[in-house]
Design a binder for these strands. Sequence first.
RNA 1: GGUCCGGUAGCUCAGUUGGAUAGAGCAUCAGCCUUCUAAGCUGAGGGUCAUUGGUUCGAAUCCAAUCCGGAUCACCA
Length: 591
Amino acid sequence: MITAILKDAVVASLRELYGQNFSEKDFQINQTKPEFEGDYTVVLFSLVKALKKSPDAIGSELGNHLLQSKNSVFVRFNIIKGFLNLSVADSYWIGNLEKNYNEICYGTKAMRGEKVMVEYSSPNTNKPLHLGHLRNNFLGWSIAAILKAAGYDIVKTCIVNDRGIHICKSMIAWKLFANGSTPQSTSIKGDHFVGDYYVKFNNEYKRQVAELVAKGIKEDEAEKEAPIMKAAQQMLVDWEAGKPDVIELWKSMNSWVYAGFDETYKRIGSDFDKVYYESDTYLLGKKLVEDGLKKKVFIEKDDGSVWIDLTADGLDEKIVRRKDGTAVYITQDIGLAVEKYEQYKCSQSIYVVGDEQNYHFKVLKLICQKLGLPSADGIYHLSYGMVELPTGKMKSREGTVVDADDLVDEMVSIAANHTQELGKVKDFTDEELKELYETISLGALKFFLLRVDPKKKMIFNPEESIDFHGFTGPFVQYTHARIRSILRKEFPAAGYKTQDTGLLPLEKELLITLEQYGTIIEQAAFEHNPSVIATYAFNLAKTFNSFYTEHSVTNAESDEKKQLRLKLCLFTANSIQSAMALLGVKVPERM
RNA sequence: GGUCCGGUAGCUCAGUUGGAUAGAGCAUCAGCCUUCUAAGCUGAGGGUCAUUGGUUCGAAUCCAAUCCGGAUCACCA
């Protein structure tokens, strides 16, 4: 890659010129700003002190030396105010084109034999998926794809929170209000069906609390005493005791939810290599508490509860076992971390979980380290910000949650309307149209959620539907479709070797952008950040569109140019397709 | 209160191992379809990078203080 070549060349030149050893970190390489001549720039200021020379003197000596070095790919240079601007030979860019224009794996790294686990999605089984889950799912899936492209073996997992008081609430409400109805009998998608009973529980609960308060009972007292809440708590006890009718109801309600989730997962493209269920894992970690006590990492208090003191690390005391001997959330996670490690031996274990749990994962990693677990150092919390509405956080109690299925449906219908208005695919069959609408609408949605830095919370305004113009998925998809349209007319001729005939500015700009793809994948993988890929795909499409309006491909000035541009088209289309695939976005042949 | 994260154009976001005149998209305005798909292209306007001070050749970027917003600090998960 050119930036790596340049860095090495500068280090070598500095050594030969001045007899001093510098490293890549002692100077900076930038892409040259468009208003100056050149392709890449060496910033000279940082070398001034060590060399005791003016930036201009270093620049001219370094520039000349770089040009004269053996096999140099640099052909010209100029120095402006301490910046050494270098021009790269056209033959370099054309060489990269020739080598990779139809290389499907372009930009990806060789497998390095290292396994990484990505846990994402992790839903509760008492309500359907919402917009926040979509961000989680798209992020997790994309990070897995990016790391795979960067040469890691990937294990995708999901932990299903299928037990606890939340699911008991849905179960109680179903028993009280459903009269035996089911998703089948009501034709409601299973996860929504169960979610509706969760809502019914809360409504009834609120009513009962209000009733008790009206009778003169204090509010916090009423919240504990409401019969429906007591029933839910009793149900949790019965569940843990394995009471057959409770278990049976729990199984069937969960199975309804899974059927609903599967439908959504299939539609949005989420998949997992291994699914863990909390009902299987919630007892894990108890043995580790014993070990921790022996190692004196944990301390037992008088009431029998077990704690870890993390105040020395700037955190608080944290409970790891209740006084009744039961495990808490963090204990399960310690246990599951060990189980995962024993099963897969991954060197890194990524948890895609919202930033509200930053503290939890800090504690988790620290405890695992103190216990000396081999899995500890590989724990990485990929923390992402909440998706908020312009009015603030989404709240299920206030009915401001954006439902995932509804949102996808709405996007599909917008995509359908828009496509029909444009009328470019009138010859498509119904089947093809349906597929196209899914491709465009999910492309818009995924791109929208992934183009923002995961760490940052983001605002979604349901009033303004997600755009199809500008920095969006459909923009990139459209560019791809346009290119494929050219390639259907004509394809690069076999065995035609492109000559170095002088590249036009837009041709070169496109080649430079294409050359950066490998570096971009590395960066996205290193940062665990799909937005790097989204930005790149957009820039590539934008650059191509400028080229496209300025220069004709099939009616190029010469055969020579036509072949060059056909290869450029194929190279760009392949790269767009590949980059978008890393985001989980498909690109259509026509739209 | 402790800890952590954020504040960049009217809106949504890039840019933060310190580098050239702070960039995109949307929205607004002005142009471009007899030529490979106008979901496109070209251009214009729009900024006290929250505030103040410091570090230095150079600060949106680093440091300190302040203001504003958010998360978290459960014998919930």
